[in-house]
Design a binder for these strands. Structure first.
Lengths: 191, 191
DNA sequence: CAATATCTAGGACGGTTGACCTAAACCTTC
DNA sequence: GAAGGTTTAGGTCAACCGTCCTAGATATTG
């Protein structure tokens, strides 16, 4: 692995700030001061704000890919793997309570801004959807697989939105349990 | 009823624009040109942007209140009333596909901005939650009522978020059906 | 050490924003 | 139709935005 470049540090800081404050509300100056560099230097690495956004989305996509690959390796059972997905909500509980889902809120903002990068952001959702779909197929859910994947994705989004709105991390625990029992009761072949 | 004042027209236009483009991304000039008045006149009616935001939220709260009251009047059966709630998703299908849920996206943006009006916006969610909770209580769900209300609210939010992300209005129909069958299978006393 | 490529700092630019002010136009009600 | 409050139009302001430029610092290589 290469050493962490300044460009990486900028992208990482931007990722965090876009998540916490939103894309539009985050200025060059905000990111620069967060990284501890001047705005001019900043401009050397990224010429436009859209370039930063692209880098941030690419970063999130890479992280998602490797996370999904990890889960694929860990659990031999698709049910276990899907459980891994459900548990992101708990792993990121406090951040979600403060800022919602990083992907969902970004997609929503970009859509409202009419920003061209909306599709790129949505493609992160597509990664999850495709991966989940494959898990359900492996479980023998057949044609229903894609619908089940979307359903699970939607449930997660709803939980994140309400947890943020009501500033209630416990709601996440509550709903995660329900999602897991839903998963058990939706398998095609019961024991 | 009083005649529609300029102040009302401004608030209505702001409500629409805040929904479609977001609060931060909407400027005074945008609203003024939408209403067809000058920025100066605009400032006469609302001194600050926060004042407009308050008016917009108050407007949404009033609309929500009267909508809930209407549902209370129409359906004598709590199940029918809850069905009314679920069907907002279909009634606003195309707008939701374009801009998401007006309440959810606003709350999320205000939270990220650290805006003081976040609680006011969340109180719209509270109206729905309280009303739904009362319906479930009337159905005899007892202590579970609040959890069921939150669950339904979360489901709706998730559906709105994904429908917007994937620009897929049909997903709304698909999930609405599921929510209705969920409702039927969660009643305390089956026939 | 010299030469070159890479990185950094900080200032300057047009443009837009929310906010504010003043003067004119529009109603009332005597 | 005069007086006085209400509404409107449009200009001004400082602050900030994304963008761009240049000169100096630092690192790399011959």
């Amino acid at each position: 692995m290469k050493q962490e470049t300044t460009k990486d540090r900028i992208a990482e800081a931007a990722k965090q700030l876009f998540y916490e404050r939103g894309f539009e509300a985050t200025s060059f100056a905000d990111i620069a001061s967060e990284v501890g560099i001047s705005r001019g230097n900043f401009y050397y690495h990224f010429r436009t704000k859209d370039e930063i956004l692209e880098a941030v989305i690419a970063r999130r996509k890479n992280e998602t890919c490797s996370m999904l690959a990890d889960w694929q390796a860990e659990g031999s059972d698709p049910v276990e793997r899907i459980t891994c997905f459900i548990h992101i909500l708990i792993a990121n509980q406090s951040k979600i309570t403060l800022f919602g889902c990083p992907v969902g809120t970004l997609v929503s903002e970009l859509t409202k801004l009419g920003h061209g990068a909306q599709d790129q952001a949505t493609s992160i959702f597509l990664l999850f959807r495709g991966w989940l779909c494959r898990q359900f197929e492996e479980l023998g859910c057949g044609e229903r697989s894609n619908g089940l994947a979307m359903h699970l994705l939607a449930r997660s989004q709803g939980v994140a939105t309400l947890a943020q709105a009501f500033k209630d991390p416990d709601f996440i625990n509550f709903e995660v349990e329900q999602m897991q029992s839903w998963l058990q009761s939706n398998l095609p072949e019961q024991l």
